[in-house]
Amino acid sequence: MSLFEAKGLAKRFGDQVVLQDVSLAFEEGRLSGIMGPNGAGKTTCFNVLTGRFAPDRGSVSFAGHDITGLPPRRIARLGVSRSFQIMNLFNDYSALDNVLVALPRVRRQGFSWWRDLGADSGAQDQAAAVLARVGLAGKERVLAKGLSYGERRALEIAVALAAEPRLLFLDEPTAGLGAEGTDRLADLVAELKRQLTIVIIEHDMRFLFRLADAVSVIHWGQVIASGTPRELRDNPWVQRSNIGALANA
């Protein structure tokens, strides 16, 4: 059985139909990708899967539990974390503080966390270990806004990892990165893939095909192809599209 599964998802905004009968399944211990052209419905699909939008029709399950329509906070508590295409960080706080507030042990303290964190060396050590995991050792006291763009991308992943997820969703993680930053991110994701189930929406097909075990192509709000990177390269529709050109570049 798949760790995460969506069946027959549909979503519209007013008269605009964005998703039509979308079904996806993500296997535990694998890296799955979602790709497609701009406006295909990828981000809306991602938001439905992670609880930002409730589907108009269809179901979503995680680890055998129906999570359809649950708010993001409840889905996160079940073991699902995500990053965002537009980074969502506390810019005026340190890298360490950004990770600290995402730790389950800190969240359980509620609004008293800021007063008590200075004395919680265990939480600080745990947050520092998460930063080291994404290559930000030594950057603990640097303000988020003082990090380079690539480091901020790594920090956002660290914040997602701090929640101790079983499944990690990454939304366009290479957005804004140059070739060197993309290569560093690929190395990081390849390492995380050894420990987590990961789902990535990504416009950089070379990045996605380098890492993914399976990829689904969304176009016109529907899944029009799925398979391994090799199978998709051989898919006639993908070959005829600009997606195919990118995938084979």
Score class of each variant (00 low, 15 high):
residue 1 M to H: 11
residue 2 S to K: 11
residue 3 L to P: 00
residue 5 E to T: 13
residue 5 E to H: 09
residue 6 A to T: 13
residue 10 A to Y: 11
residue 11 K to C: 12
residue 12 R to F: 08
residue 13 F to H: 09
residue 14 G to N: 08
residue 14 G to P: 05
residue 15 D to M: 13
residue 17 V to T: 13
residue 18 V to D: 13
residue 20 Q to P: 00
residue 21 D to W: 05
residue 23 S to R: 06
residue 24 L to N: 02
residue 24 L to I: 15
residue 37 P to G: 14
residue 42 K to C: 10
residue 42 K to E: 07
residue 42 K to T: 09
residue 43 T to C: 12
residue 46 F to E: 05
residue 51 G to Y: 07
residue 51 G to S: 11
residue 57 R to Q: 14
residue 58 G to M: 08
residue 60 V to G: 04
residue 65 H to D: 14
residue 69 G to F: 06
residue 69 G to E: 01
residue 71 P to W: 09
residue 71 P to T: 10
residue 72 P to E: 03
residue 77 R to C: 05
residue 78 L to Y: 05
residue 78 L to Q: 12
residue 79 G to H: 03
residue 82 R to A: 13
residue 84 F to G: 05
residue 84 F to C: 08
residue 84 F to K: 01
residue 85 Q to F: 01
residue 85 Q to A: 14
residue 89 L to P: 01
residue 95 A to K: 01
residue 96 L to V: 07
residue 96 L to D: 05
residue 97 D to Y: 08
residue 101 V to C: 05
residue 103 L to C: 12
residue 105 R to L: 07
residue 109 Q to N: 06
residue 112 S to P: 00
residue 112 S to M: 14
residue 117 L to I: 15
residue 118 G to Y: 06
residue 122 G to C: 01
residue 122 G to Q: 12
residue 123 A to E: 04
residue 124 Q to H: 09
residue 124 Q to I: 03
residue 125 D to W: 00
residue 128 A to P: 00
residue 131 L to K: 11
residue 133 R to C: 06
residue 134 V to S: 14
residue 135 G to L: 01
residue 137 A to I: 04
residue 140 E to W: 06
residue 141 R to W: 10
residue 142 V to Y: 10
residue 142 V to W: 07
residue 145 K to D: 11
residue 147 L to I: 11
residue 147 L to F: 13
residue 147 L to D: 07
residue 149 Y to P: 02
residue 149 Y to D: 04
residue 150 G to V: 07
residue 152 R to S: 11
residue 153 R to T: 00
residue 156 E to I: 03
residue 156 E to H: 04
residue 159 V to P: 02
residue 161 L to C: 06
residue 162 A to M: 01
residue 163 A to S: 15
residue 166 R to E: 13
residue 167 L to F: 14
residue 168 L to T: 03
residue 168 L to K: 01
residue 169 F to T: 11
residue 175 A to R: 08
residue 176 G to E: 10
residue 176 G to N: 06
residue 178 G to R: 03
residue 179 A to C: 00
residue 179 A to S: 13
residue 180 E to P: 00
residue 181 G to S: 12
residue 193 K to R: 15
residue 195 Q to S: 15
residue 196 L to S: 14
residue 196 L to W: 10
residue 197 T to G: 10
residue 199 V to R: 05
residue 203 H to V: 03
residue 209 F to D: 03
residue 211 L to G: 05
residue 214 A to V: 12
residue 216 S to G: 11
residue 218 I to W: 08
residue 219 H to S: 15
residue 222 Q to W: 02
residue 223 V to C: 09
residue 223 V to G: 12
residue 226 S to L: 05
residue 229 P to G: 06
residue 230 R to H: 14
residue 231 E to S: 13
residue 232 L to D: 08
residue 232 L to P: 01
residue 233 R to D: 12
residue 237 W to D: 14
residue 238 V to W: 09
residue 241 S to H: 08
residue 241 S to C: 05
residue 244 G to P: 03
residue 248 N to M: 15
residue 248 N to F: 05
